[in-house]
Amino acid sequence: MVSHPVLCNYYVTYRCNAKCGFCDIWERPSPYIDLYSAMANFRDLKKLGVKVIDFTGGEPLLHRDIDRLLAEAKGQGFITTLTTNCLLYPKWAKKLKGKVDMLHFSLDSPVRQEHDQSRGVECYDFIVESIKIASGLGERPDILFTVFENNVHQIEEVYEQFCRPHNLVLILNPVFEYNDVKTGQPLSEDTLQKLQSWAGKRNVYLNEAFIQLRKDGGNHIDNPVCKAASSTLVISPDNQLVLPCYHLGKRSFHIEDNLYQLYTSPEVQQLIAREGRYPECEGCTINCYMQPSFAVEVNKYWWKALPSTIKYSYMKGTWKQLISKNLHF
């Protein structure tokens, strides 16, 4: 359906002020993206047809110019999204107001001790404070709940305690494995069924294609569903284009303020053509690349993802932007 990239995962830094056990990004040394390179990249991202920029990390609020980056992206017509552990949100809240279309607050457990243990720092109280601050500013952040085999039973408590009182969307994010990062037991059939039962609940977003993909054993290299490289661009903090995705990271190319020419070059296009077909791609279920993959090719996953995509766009009010930008995402 779409023959150009629709999403940019822009890593503003790999640095993080938390130490989550299910993530290894924070372990990497990292610079911060510079404004000059970002402006040049925004120009070329627009030329390439990208509509959504996810300012990610690490912890994106560690970047001292994150508000300027978001403002510039919004000013150029991009839909913006950002996920934070909330340690710095109270500091940034007023400056971020109106600049993030899809703002996510990460929460792993409704129990303070369990959440803080998962994150490696004490940040539970910051989430509680951040929700109050955001609500006072008229912002409506989502609660991003990563679902493990051992916390699926806590979905209802998170929903009732954090989402319903503040009319916030609960995003259910099934955990995925990558590289050598240990995330515990794979999600069982029973857990997948429990997850799926939440899909129709008010103010709950669950992409049911994530469930179907796991039931099917993930991506298969002989007939890949993954469109990571053609649907999504990954830009690193040191201004490199990473292919085919961040987590696999087979090749990196210095952008040097010419992202459009680099992305359309024969060498990069040859790598893109192998998306989902590398040996390491077998069984992959990485949500941040599968979601845009589901949106660009009509297959059973497209149909599975469609209801939740429409629902979320309606809940967040982004459907007007999506239609105006002729974007199916």
Rank of each mutant, 00 (worst) to 15 (best):
V2R: 12
S3E: 14
V6G: 15
C8E: 00
Y10W: 14
R15E: 11
C16A: 11
G21M: 07
C23A: 11
Y32H: 12
S37Y: 04
A38N: 01
N41W: 05
F42Q: 01
K47C: 07
T56I: 13
P60C: 01
L62S: 04
R64L: 13
R68A: 13
L70E: 06
E72M: 13
Q76G: 01
Q76A: 01
N85G: 12
L87I: 15
L87V: 15
L88W: 07
A93E: 10
K97Y: 02
K99L: 15
F105N: 06
V121W: 03
E122W: 03
Y124Q: 06
K132P: 03
E139Q: 11
P141C: 06
F162Y: 15
F162A: 02
C163R: 02
R164F: 03
P165D: 07
N167V: 00
L168M: 08
L170I: 09
N173Y: 13
P186S: 08
T191I: 10
S197H: 09
W198Y: 14
W198L: 10
A199S: 15
K201R: 15
R202E: 15
Q212C: 00
H220T: 10
N223K: 14
V225S: 12
K227M: 15
T232V: 12
P237I: 01
N239R: 04
N239M: 11
V242I: 14
C245Y: 01
L248H: 12
S252L: 03
F253P: 04
E256T: 07
D257T: 01
P266L: 08
E267P: 00
Q269Y: 08
E275M: 05
Y278N: 06
E280P: 00
C284Q: 01
C284Y: 01
C284V: 05
Q291D: 12
A295Y: 06
V298H: 04
K300L: 05
Y301D: 07
S308M: 12
I310C: 06
S313D: 06
Y314V: 07
M315A: 01
K316G: 00
G317I: 00
G317D: 04
I323H: 10
S324N: 15
K325H: 09
H328F: 14
